[in-house]
Design a protein around this nucleic acid. Structure first.
Lengths: 301, 301
DNA sequence: AGTAAAATGGACGATTTGGATGATTTTATG
DNA sequence: CATAAAATCATCCAAATCGTCCATTTTACT
């Protein structure tokens, strides 16, 4: 029943180098089990004892606190969604952050993280809510957590300066800021400079923003449509204005039914973040400098 | 995700010699953790706390994972508000961050930063909007920027673990997340563990949250009241439920006119973040441990 | 001004840390 | 089972940090 950890994992958990940790093992500060091939394995409880006795710092508690989630499993995207649901509903922000950042560091495209983990997780929470297994406040609270994680993720991106500008917003009455924030991160990941106008923006004001900033792209996330006909009229007005100055208009969101879509004019419709990413790449006609996963970790400034 | 710094790094950041810094660590002015080999490691939050409490200058903010500063203009709170307005309206997120973080490092209480800078800035923007000098999207976009800055500020606080829990939210229909987020940061600054439920929460769900988490405090930020009588009824229902389990209810927000207030029952009403801070301090009944900044008294003859 | 306590910061050899390397073991995948 | 990719091994070494001592500067008080 003892979970075994590799030196690398323990080193990461307590924020020291692998070299140091191995030295400590060899000095007997940590008792290790050895594999047939001579690799060191450290039982979790032994690692915990070490931390307690040495009064050592723990930088990444999750590695020691959440058995069954060693790094390899963490990087597999399959069961991340359910782990995220668990983390969100128990208000374990640490764990949520860990899940997302592990994937990010494992060089998963952000679009994929969003489509296959975050979106899935919130769909699950939504279903739980409908079945009365979760309360509204839990869903909202989860949104807060996710938003903080997303903001942190965003701050870790290299700020693009391609000269291509995209503006984004949510229509009036639609206060779901998660999708529009994810879109922004996706666009930034493929080199767009973005400016997120925010949630619940009236169409007229969007038009004003477009005319003032003359962006190459405008993206609109539609999670909720209070008034269908007003939405369609407003949107087409927006498209009209955007066309005049060659601004591509991209829409997406779960509230856009096929019926609504047939009555809209747009440059692209995106079902998923991956679609958005592909379209954004295409639009900027440059083969993109994908955030490379280099082996050599570089010192951050 | 708290980063560990070496004495040398912290010394460089605040522009003192390594010797001094090590001495301070040994005197307990800075809480350090130690590696197994006996090297000192200082968590960033701890370094920030030290800088703020001692009112120490910071020469290299980057080493403390803080955004770059503009030391000449900074530190004076007077014209920060207008500089912030400028930064927000020109979408200069860097500048906005610098303004807020400079004040933070200069040991200004977060409540004061919020009351005298951020709140003032947004009041100014609101006025500009009314005078048609600014568009709605600019105000919303400013909110996005401010929200990101606030989230970053929050991540720089030492995570409190007092055991005292506060829940916070915004009423249904009120989507202004800035005030409620500022409140959270203020509460955390004075040692409360907080859980922000989010914006636009129905009263019934708030009651459910209170009953489930049994917090010592519930705070409600009211920037907008869609239906006055429904609000009053709902709120008093909330207060009732909270009273039963000894949860203090704190309200605040610009939408609370005196007429509305006279019909509400609450533990405290806060006009400003400073009020909230004072009330929160009082409620936790602990006299704050004032760090002595005087040198040791010399022997008296 | 004069004095002494207190604080600062530099220097020292001894110790610790962490990055790099090429060989070996483990794990993932067909 | 076989193969390739990833993780870990043992080792070495430069750089960082330790604790300590001491000269110098600052501060507090007479």
């Amino acid at each position: 029943m003892d979970q075994l950890l590799s030196p690398k994992q323990v080193a990461a958990a307590i924020g020291v180098s692998e070299s140091s940790l191995k030295r400590w093992c060899d000095q007997g500060l940590l008792t290790t089990v050895k594999t047939a091939g001579g690799h060191r394995r450290i039982p979790v409880q032994e690692a915990l004892r070490f931390v307690r006795e040495q009064n050592h710092a723990v930088v990444e508690p999750r590695l020691l606190a959440m058995p069954g989630t060693d790094n390899r499993k963490a990087r597999r995207i399959e069961n991340c969604a359910e782990r995220l649901v668990e983390g969100l509903l128990t208000n374990n922000e640490q764990a949520c952050r860990a899940i997302v950042f592990d994937l990010f560091l494992a060089a998963q495209p952000v679009s994929q993280i969003f489509d296959e983990v975050i979106a899935v997780a919130f769909r699950t929470i939504g279903e739980k809510w409908e079945c009365n297994e979760a309360d509204i406040y839990q869903e909202r609270c989860s949104c807060q957590i996710a938003l903080r994680v997303l903001h942190e993720l965003r701050s870790k991106q290299t700020p693009p300066n391609s000269g291509l500008v995209a503006l984004g917003a949510t229509v009036e009455g639609d206060q779901y800021s998660l999708p529009v924030t994810m879109s922004e991160i996706v666009l930034r990941a493929v080199g767009w400079e973005t400016r997120l106008l925010g949630s619940s923006i009236p169409f007229d004001s969007m038009v004003a923003a477009i005319q003032q900033h003359k962006p190459e792209m405008f993206w609109l996330s539609v999670s909720f449509v209070p008034d269908e006909s007003a939405f369609i009229a407003g949107f087409n007005r927006l498209f009209e204005a955007a066309s005049k100055i060659n601004t591509a208009v991209v829409v997406g969101g779960r509230a856009l039914t096929t019926e609504i879509r047939t009555r809209l004019r747009y440059s692209a419709f995106c079902d998923t973040m991956r679609h958005l990413e592909e379209f954004a790449k295409t639009l900027r006609r440059q083969t993109e400098v994908v955030p490379k996963k280099t082996r050599k970790p570089r010192k951050n400034a």
